Simulated assay, not measured.
Amino acid sequence: MKYIEYGKEELDYLIKKDKVLGDYIKKTGFIKRELNSDIFTSLISSIISQQVSTKAAKTINERLNNIVINLTPKKILELDDSLLQSIGISFRKVSYMKDIAKNFIDKPYIYNNLNNLPDHLIVEELIKLKGVGTWTAEMLLIHSFNRRDVISFLDLGIKRGIMRLYNKDSISKEDWIYFKNLYAPYNTIASIYLWEASK
C-alpha cells in the first residue's frame, strides 16, 4: 500500500508557520493517508462514494472488486448495467462509470499524460467527465497525483477542521484564501491534519 509522501521538512515548515496547526501536528504525530496512483480506479471509487456513507461506499467498492479483479475501463464497459445496480450502484452512477471508462479508452493521450499537467489543468480535464466535479478532481490531486499544495474549499471536513482548531463558527471564502496562503506550499499536508482535527 502506498501513502501520500511527506515528512519532517513539511511538518517543520507548518509548525514554524502557524502555532495553532503546529501545536496540533506536534500533539497528533505523523498521519498516514493512502495514495492510489491509478487514476481510473480512483475515479470509479469517487463516483461510488458520492452521496453515500463511508461505510456504504466501502461495501460497494468491495463488492465491485469481488466481481472484477484488476479493474480496467474495458472491464467496466463489459459489465452489465443491471449487475452493477445489483451491488448498490445507482443507474446514474453506472452511466457515469461507463462514460468515464469510454473516455479513458477513446482518449488515452489525455488521461495517460495528466500527471504532466499543472494542478489547475488536471482539474479542468477531469471535470469534463460526467459525474466529476471540482471537489472530486481536487481529491484526486491529493490522493492519486500526490500533489503537495491542495486544499479544497468545497470539502466539509477541511472547513470543520479549521473551525475546530481556530474556534470559528463558519469559514468564508476570504478565510479559506487566508489559510491557503498561510499553509502554502504544503496545503496538502495541512489538509491531512485538518481532516484529522474534524473527526
Rank of each mutant, 00 (worst) to 15 (best):
L121H: 02
P118I: 04
S172I: 00
T28S: 13
L129Q: 07
N115Q: 13
I67E: 15
K17G: 06
V132Y: 02
D169A: 14
L21T: 05
K55H: 14
K102C: 03
K2D: 15
A56S: 15
D175M: 03
L154Q: 13
I15P: 03
E196R: 14
T134M: 02
G7R: 11
I105K: 12
K159G: 06
L11S: 07
L64Y: 12
M139Q: 06
K128S: 00
T136S: 15
Y178N: 09
S191Y: 04
D23R: 12
D155P: 05
F179E: 05
G7Q: 11
T136E: 11
K130D: 12
I192S: 06
T134I: 12
D155R: 03
Y13N: 05
L117V: 00
N115K: 14
A184Y: 03
S42F: 00
G157I: 07
D80P: 03
L156E: 14
N116Y: 08
A101S: 15
N146I: 04
I31Q: 07
D155I: 00
K199S: 14
V68T: 10
V132S: 08
G133R: 02
L83R: 14
S45K: 07
N70E: 14
V123I: 12
D149Y: 02
L165E: 08
L182C: 02
W135A: 03
K168I: 00
I25M: 05
Q51H: 11
L129K: 04
E124A: 09
L11M: 09
K32F: 07
K98F: 05
K102M: 11
N112T: 01
Y166R: 10
P73L: 05
E9N: 13
L165P: 07
E78W: 08
V94E: 09
K102I: 00
H143K: 07
I44L: 04
K107E: 14
P108G: 10
S170M: 13
L140P: 04
N103W: 05
T59S: 15
A197L: 09
K75R: 15
G88A: 14
T54E: 13
L117M: 13
S198I: 01
R147E: 04
E62K: 15
P185L: 03
F145S: 06
N36P: 01
Y178T: 05
D81F: 04
I192W: 09
D106P: 01
S42Y: 00
T72F: 05
K75Q: 11
T59P: 06
K168A: 06
Y6H: 08
A101Y: 11
L84P: 10
L129N: 09
F91M: 06
I69M: 14
E62G: 13
A137W: 02
S46R: 06
N167I: 01
A101K: 10
G133H: 06
F104Q: 06
K93A: 08
P118C: 01
W135T: 01
R92C: 01
Y96W: 03
S172R: 05
K93S: 10
L21E: 08
